[in-house]
Structure formats: structure tokens, C-alpha cells
Write a protein that binds this DNA or RNA. Structure first.
Length: 574
RNA sequence: CGGGAUGUAGCUCAGCAUGGCUAGAGCGCUGCGUUCGGGACGCAGAGGCCGGAGGUUCGAAUCCUCUCAUCCCGACCA
């Protein structure tokens, strides 16, 4: 591709409404343009990267035995009503009516559609297992789209769905996808980690997320430094060392704590450690009041609470609700004498006593509380988020917390959709059985953004060869005479080798070409100018390292091939 | 949905508290000339309903009200 005839509108300055690096750089490198909040147009360079990601995904999905299909973006409401998600999914589901006043939505995911397809098609166990996938734009009306492609409303996703006769078969399908994902993200040149995850609104009972490690990630993952254990913070099990509970605890007494609302204030006021205080958090869980207890220095994880109660909606109680339930202002809730039916306590609290808790009365707390003796607990459960250094649930060594970008998610769905939608088959005995499903997503457009988060420097993007819009750029510094002829020659040769390259033959000053090449991030730059040619050399630059080398004009092809191998090795060996 | 911020040239921004002649700069764009190995320089140009609507005023980019859009934080820690 000749840049003189290409459309790569680069920007010198950072766009005002971009915050994270990938967003800024994709805008600046002329890869994308915003249409409206969370919705972007892919320009030629951006599309090329996107397609490269999609191609690798397709290759590995095909290799794993999945079959590509393409489902509609618009979906009828009745399918969603069948599975109950029409009510459950909430505002993320963009709904609208057609001219006949029928309800539709823009597909945020395709479990319903694919299950509908399968229930009409699959009759016999002989047709299973089956794995269907598609690469398609999804629409989710995010509460707050942000960070460019990272959390857009419209985004390209690869979603696959497996259908098996039983859980054993599903396990094999799951494993095949898990392995395909590892290959995909490795080939994409991303540094990632597969972690155990919560299943969210997709449902199911077992899942892994594939996280690209990056500080700008929206998710926190807990990873063991010693073993393979890794989990999303929503899932990471908090292990409490089992120690003997101190037997003695004086009878509780109420003490005044005027104006002390927060744990810190209470602890300071009473002269105890925050870890000696019990936080009582009140929630509206599917319309019912629930109290959740964690140690004062801990973070309650609402996803864990939701899962512990097998609930759908968990919302922190409003201050009106708190006052109604505790008969006290906000800040003084406690488990003793609390008129709330469901009271869950974090497991850690079972191993301690002599707590400070809210008194359910204004400006007062209780000292010397033993939860088992003084409060009525529904049960203990794993409610708190793990913190840096907590013991790994697998091996007991310390966990470390890092940020990650979720780029892939594999779920073992089970019968959730197939049962609701009656997707069944006949087994060898002629018995009707429900199909066991799995689903597997990859955020293709997010992968591109995540890649940039991981691979950039002050000059711009440093694309790994697998995702770069072009692998090489021939920068022709002199657009006439011998340099141009040489540049044309090398460019033609690169193309003949199947190396995707651009020829910067624009009538621009050298500085502009250097800056643009760095910004767009072609892994290899080949610089051709009169000075080098005069000395019989062509300069090349490895974008990732910034290292330059001079290759002889005579024997360039061989020298280049060797150098290209080194560049590739550098990427692989990171 | 709550909080914060911002809407002025294609882009990045000044001007606005204290209303006043023809609304500015840099980059980009067009033309000419000089340059030509890390975002050149000079000269000459084009380009604005100051987000939109209403209001106050002799007069509004500037003040008031409403509205729309975009971005950021939050929407669990009592």
C-alpha cells in the first residue's frame, strides 16, 4: 500500500475526550473515529488490525473443531422471554419495536438465538457434539461506555456455543476451547492469564476469564505467585486461617460513639483496631433486607454476597431503608437485635470474638460482642474480597493482586438455556435428554485495544507483528531519483515475499514519516534515503526496541530476512 | 441514575469573573517561494449561527433559565 494514496489520518495532539492510552493512540494513529459515545468507525488501519485479530481467532476456532455461522444482530423478544432474560437483563439490552409493535432487541449475546436454532435442528445424539461460533458486532447499552474500544457499546465479538450430550462431553468441549484460547492469545502476542471467574448474567456454574495484564484494566485479579491459581477478585476465595476462637468474652455493653459513623472513626474513638470492629452492611437483595457482616478492615464483595444468596439483584440499601430496618441513622447498624431475617457473616468472623458492632441506635456501638452468643446469624459465608498477601486457596502461598483486561471468557453453561428452551435430543435408548451447553466469548475489538495498552511507548504504538495493520513500512525519504527507485524495488520485493508493507511515498519531510511510522507502530521500519544509499546501506529499525541496524544494499534480501527473524524472536521472547 | 467538568475554526485551546467596535492563537488545510535524515520557515489565503432554545440588556461567546452532547468519578464500605 502506498501511503500517498492511503487514508491514515494521524493526529499530532491528544484528542480531548480520550483518557486511556489505547484510546488516544488509536485515535491519533488514524485507526478509529468516534461516531457517538461508545460507538466507533474503524478506519483502514484499524480495520486491518481488527481483521487480523479476527483471522487468528477464526483459524484457532476452526482448528478446535468449531464451525462458523452468522446469526442476526436483531433478535425477537419472545426468545428472551422464554429464558426469562427479557426481564433480568436490564437496561443493557437495547429494546425497540418494529412497525407491528412487536418487541425486539439488539443482540448483546446470542445464547437464545443459537439455542433456538439447535432445538429445531438437533434430534439425535449422533449430531452431537457440536460447536458453532460467529464473529459479529454486539450491542450492549453500557451504563457508562468508556476508554474507547475497551468498553464500547458496539463491539466485535467472537462467540462460540458448544452442545454436548452430557457434562462429560461438555468438559471436553470446554477444555478444547480453553486450549484454543490459550493458543489464540499467545499468537496475538498478548501477555495474559486465565483465571477462575464469576459467571455474571450469562449464567452457568463454571468459568474462566482470560485477562490481559495491564494497569488500566477494569478488573482486579488475584494470582498466586507460587502456583497456577488465578481468579477474578469476584471469585477469588478468601481463606481464613483456622485458629482457635478465644473462649472468653465479657458480656456486651453499649457505649456512646457520638458522630462516629465509619469504621475508622469508631475504631479511633474507642481506641481499638479497625480489625476488631465488625462492619454491618445492609442490602436490598431481590427486594428483601439482608445484612452482611465483614471485619472492619475488609472489603465486602457484593458478587460473593449475591452468589451466597443465589440472588439476582443486590443493591446497597438506601439510607431510608437502613433507617427503617435498624431504627437508627446510617452508620450504627449492628447484628445484635437486628430485625433483619437474613444475616450473613464473613467466614473470617467465626474465628474471633470480642467485637465492636453498631448498636442500632444513634451515636452508639456495642463492645464485647460475641457473634455466636449475642447475634442471630443465618450462616457464615465467603463474603470478603481477598487482599494482597492473603493465602492462596490452592497452595497457601501469598496472593498478589493485579489489574487485567478481560478479553475472553469461557463458560460451562449446563442446562440453563437448553432446558428453558427445550433443546433436547434422543439418546441411544430413544430417551429424550437435554443438551448440555457451553459458551465462549472473545472481545475481538477489545483485544486490539488491550494489545495497545500492553505495547506502546512515548512515540506511539508498538504493534506485535500478529496484530500490526502492516508488518513493515518502507520510509522513502526522497521521493525522486535513486531513493524512490530503490524504495519501490524493496517494496515490491516485500510484497512478493508476502510481507504486508506500506510504502511511504508521500511528499512529506522525513521527520513526518518517522513520527507517523512510530505512531502507527509498524513492527519494522525500512528507511531509504540518499545518505544511506550513498554508503551502500539501508537503515532498518525494530519498532519495539527502537534498535536500528544498517543492512547492505547488496545482499539486502538475505540480510533483511535474518533481521526480520530477530525482530520476530524479540517479540516471542518477551 | 448521583457527583464533577467541558462544549468557541478540521484538531488542541485562549477569550467569559468585570457584557461593548471586525472573535483570536498554534497545529492542520489551499497557493507561492525557500527548505528536505526525527512533526521546517516566510508570505498570502480559506475556514466560526461561540452546542441548541428562550430570556435579561441599547448591546450577549461572555449574565440568567431550560435543553442537548461529550468526558471523568461513583453507582458496595453506612
Amino acid at each position: 500500500m502506498r501511503l500517498s494514496r492511503y487514508y491514515a489520518p494521524t493526529l499530532k495532539e491528544d484528542p480531548a475526550d480520550a483518557e486511556v492510552v489505547s484510546h488516544k493512540l488509536m485515535l491519533r494513529a488514524g485507526m478509529i473515529r468516534k461516531l457517538t459515545s461508545g460507538i466507533y468507525t474503524f478506519l483502514p488501519l484499524g480495520l486491518r488490525s481488527l481483521n487480523k485479530a479476527a483471522r487468528i481467532v477464526r483459524e484457532e476456532m476452526d482448528r478446535a473443531g468449531a464451525l462458523e455461522i452468522l446469526m442476526p444482530g436483531v433478535q425477537p423478544a419472545d426468545l428472551w422471554q422464554e429464558t426469562g432474560r427479557w426481564e433480568v437483563y436490564g437496561k443493557e439490552l437495547l429494546r425497540f419495536k418494529d412497525r407491528h409493535d412487536r418487541d425486539y432487541c439488539l443482540g448483546p449475546t446470542h445464547e437464545e438465538v443459537v439455542t433456538d436454532l439447535i432445538r429445531h435442528e438437533v434430534r439425535s445424539y449422533r449430531q452431537l457434539p457440536l460447536n458453532l461460533y460467529q464473529v459479529q458486532f454486539k450491542f450492549r447499552d453500557e451504563i457508562r461506555p468508556r476508554f474507547g474500544l475497551m468498553r464500547g457499546r458496539e463491539f466485535l465479538m467472537k462467540d462460540a456455543y458448544s452442545f454436548d450430550r452430557d457434562e462429560e462431553g461438555a468438559n471436553a468441549s470446554y477444555k478444547a476451547m480453553y486450549e484454543a484460547y490459550c493458543r489464540i492469545f499467545t499468537r496475538l502476542g498478548l501477555q495474559f492469564r486465565a483465571v477462575e471467574a464469576d459467571t455474571g448474567s450469562i449464567g452457568g456454574n463454571y468459568s474462566h476469564e482470560f485477562m490481559v495484564l495491564a494497569d488500566t484494566g477494569e478488573d482486579t485479579i488475584a494470582a498466586c505467585m507460587a502456583c497456577e491459581y488465578g481468579a477474578n477478585l469476584e471469585k477469588a476465595e478468601a481463606v481464613s486461617p483456622e485458629c482457635a476462637k478465644p473462649a472468653v468474652c465479657a458480656a456486651y455493653e453499649q457505649v456512646p460513639t457520638p458522630g462516629a459513623h465509619t469504621v475508622e472513626e469508631v475504631a479511633k474513638f474507642l481506641g481499638v483496631e479497625p480489625s476488631q470492629v465488625v462492619k454491618t452492611l445492609l442490602f436490598d437483595v431481590d427486594g428483601e433486607p439482608v445484612a452482611a457482616l465483614v471485619r472492619g478492615d475488609r472489603e465486602l464483595n457484593d458478587v460473593k454476597l449475591k452468589n451466597a444468596l443465589n440472588a439476582t439483584n443486590v443493591a446497597l440499601a438506601t439510607s431510608e431503608q437502613v433507617q427503617a430496618w435498624t431504627k437508627a441513622p446510617v452508620g450504627f447498624a449492628g447484628p445484635v437485635g437486628l430485625g433483619v431475617k437474613t444475616v450473613l457473616a464473613d467466614r473470617e468472623l467465626a474465628w474471633g470474638t470480642d467485637w465492636v458492632v453498631g448498636a442500632n441506635a444513634a451515636d452508639a456501638h456495642l463492645k464485647h460482642v460475641d457473634l455466636d452468643r449475642d447475634a442471630t446469624l443465618t450462616r457464615y459465608a465467603d463474603l470478603r474480597s481477598v487482599t494482597e498477601g492473603d493465602p492462596c486457596p490452592k497452595c497457601g502461598k501469598p496472593l498478589s493482586l493485579t489489574k487485567g483486561i478481560e478479553v475472553g471468557h469461557v463458560f460451562k453453561l449446563g442446562y440453563k438455556y437448553s432446558e428453558a428452551m427445550k433443546a433436547t435430543f434422543l439418546d441411544e435408548q430413544g430417551k429424550d435428554r437435554i443438551i448440555f451447553m457451553g459458551c465462549y466469548g472473545i472481545g475481538v475489538s477489545r483485544v486490539v485495544a488491550a494489545c495497545i495498552e500492553q505495547n506502546h511507548d512515548g512515540g506511539g504504538i508498538a504493534f506485535p507483528p500478529a496484530l500490526a495493520p502492516f508488518e513493515a513500512a518502507v520510509l522513502c525519504l526522497d521521493t525522486k531519483g535513486e531513493p524512490l527507485a530503490k524504495a519501490e524495488e524493496l517494496y515490491a520485493w516485500l510484497n512478493a515475499q508476502g510481507i504486508e508493507a506500506v510504502l511511504d511515498d508521500r511528499d512529506e519531510r522525513p521527520g513526518v514519516k518517522f513520527k507517523d511510522a512510530d505512531l502507527i507502530g509498524y513492527p519494522m521500519q525500512i528507511v531509504i534515503g540518499g545518505k544511506g544509499l550513498g554508503r551502500g546501506v539501508v537503515e532498518v529499525k525494530d519498532r519495539r526496541t527502537g534498535e536500528k541496524a544498517e543492512l547492505p544494499v547488496e545482499g539486502f534480501q538475505e540480510a533483511f530476512t535474518t533481521w526480520r527473524g530477530k525482530v520476530a524472536e524479540g517479540w516471542a521472547g518477551r
